[in-house]
Structures are given as structure tokens and as C-alpha cells.
Computed example of a mutant assay.
Amino acid sequence: MQIFSAAEVHQQLNFPLLIANLKQAFANSVDLPRRQVYPLQQGKPDAFALLPAWDNQGIAVKAFTYMPDNPKKDPALASLYSQILLFDRHTGQPQALIDGTSVTYWRTAAVSALAASFLARQDAKRLLLLGTGNLAPFMALAHASVRPLTEIRIWGRRPEAVAEVIRNVARERPDLHLSPASDLAEEVPQADIISCATGAHEPLFNGEWVSPGSHCDLVGNHHKGGRECDSQLVLNSSVYVDSRTNVLHEAGELLIPMAEGLINESHVLGELADLCRGTSIGRKHPQERTLFKSVGSALADLAAARTVFNGTGN
């Protein structure tokens, strides 16, 4: 069994290859049980989760711990640790143990970019990225790999964190014009793609600010009572998700407007798999507002882990 560190994952992956492999994986039929998240202590957010998936080639299970107070205890500690086990589907033999945290950054961003390849306008040039965490540079680079972006505006609450994201993205894509964003009331209406990867539990902006023709991508919230966008944006948009089962179980972006009686489950027009198979059309006209909500899929973990494993010649 091979072991892949985070550095080796970063070395093996690139967005054009990963997005192509994800598209193929989502177009195929797979067995995908709902992921299981186990609270570790009553009244605390600490959790342990398992995400299994398998297809006719492989089996993968990602296990991760989430302990958000870790950095407060020790700056050297991360809030999330993750590993992926990859097995051969036909023999059951373990093939690889792969750093799951790095894979999660890559596959989360690649899934959003894959969705944007169906939902964002072909001529989208301006990306507004909200969030400055570890995922942020991956989101910017992934979207820039599927649309002809020329400008990326980055918003965050700490200017030094915004500057760090700009440096990281510029290192990979010096051709892009990268700059901080400040007033979202001005920034949101000008964006062709709005990508939210924050820890926010309250809407980040007024949904009425989003211009016709824009695409919104929401990946940061995984809580029933939290959301990165308001109900109005959901109501005004054609909505797609990575997984109906998971999103309608844990994403406040949809569960809250459903509780308000504004929408029902039929407001979700399709899953990413439907877009990849061609059973959902995706964007239908240039003025359509589209929205993609992702909470993470074990299928994406499986496809990304297999991309890492196969990249070594296996």
C-alpha cells in the first residue's frame, strides 16, 4: 500500500486533469451512502465523520476529525485532519492511504469549477471570491481553469489574509489581475461569478445585489441553521447541488427558505451528476441567475484519490 503526503498530493494534481476525471466520475453510476457525521461531545462542535463511496474500479472512505478550537489551544494544530483509504474494487486490497485534507481542497474547488463549467456564462471574466482560508487560492485557480477570467477580487475580514491569498494565486497565475474587495454592495453587482468559501453563519450580502447572468457558488457552510446567502438569492436563482441527499440534510442555504415556505425540494433543478450526464441542461440563457450549493461528496474524494494514485503510474 502506498502512502501519499500532502506535498505529494499537490505534486500529482492539476485542475484540468482533476476536473475531467470528476466529470467522468459524476457521469457514471456509483454507490454513494449518505455521509455520517458523529458529534463527539454534547454542546461542542467537535466531530468525527466518515464518507464512503465505490464504483466499478475502486472503493474509498474518507475519515476526518473537526475540532475548531485546536488553533486556540496550539497554533501548530489544525482544526481539521483527514485521511482517505483507497481499495481495489475487485480484490478489496488496500491500495493507498492519502492525505485527505489536501485532497479536500483540490476536489472542493474542482467540483465548484466543474459546476461552473455548466452554469456560469461562457464569457465570465470577473470573479468575486469571498473567504481567505486555506481553500481560497484553490477556488480562484479552479474557476480560472474553466472560464476566461481576467480579474479576481478577493474579500475577507483581515487585510493581511486577503494579501496572502493574492500572493498565492499570483504565484500560479501571474496573468490574472488580483485585488482586494471592500464594499460588497459595489462588488457583488459587478461579478460574473461569486464564490463563497467562508465560515459565515449569516448571509454575506443582499441577494438583490446579484446581477442577472451571474453565477453563485457556495461551499463554506455545512450547518442547518447557517448560510452564506439569503433566501432572496435562492428564490431568484436556478439552483443545482452536488448531492440532494446531503444538501437537503445539512445546508441552511436551502433548508431555511424551505422552512420559511418560500421554496420546496423541487426548487433544486438537478445534481452535478445530472449536469455531467446531460440530463439537466444547466444555464439556459445569458440573463439567468444560477446557484450551486456544495457540501462535499465522497464520490469527489474517490475520483480525486484515484487521480493521485494513478498519477504515479499505477
Rank of each mutant, 00 (worst) to 15 (best):
K224S: 12
E151F: 00
Q2A: 14
Q24L: 12
P75V: 06
F118I: 03
P174H: 11
A63I: 11
S294Q: 09
H143R: 09
E187I: 01
T312Q: 15
R157I: 08
A181Q: 05
V146E: 01
A63S: 14
R89M: 09
G311E: 05
S179P: 02
F138Q: 04
L97H: 09
S102A: 14
Y81S: 10
S297V: 12
N310S: 14
T312G: 15
D46E: 14
G296P: 05
D31C: 15
S117F: 05
K224V: 15
A124P: 11
G92M: 05
E151Y: 00
R157Q: 06
G226I: 06
K73G: 02
P212W: 10
K284C: 12
A27H: 05
V268R: 10
G156L: 11
L184C: 10
E271I: 10
A76S: 14
L135R: 05
D175Y: 02
R306H: 08
P33K: 08
A144S: 11
Q57C: 08
A298N: 03
A27D: 01
A185T: 15
D192K: 03
V165M: 04
Y240Q: 04
D99S: 10
Q36L: 15
I152F: 10
V146Y: 07
Y38R: 00
L141S: 11
T65P: 13
G270N: 05
F64C: 12
Q41P: 02
L114T: 10
R306M: 14
Q12G: 09
R147K: 10
A7W: 06
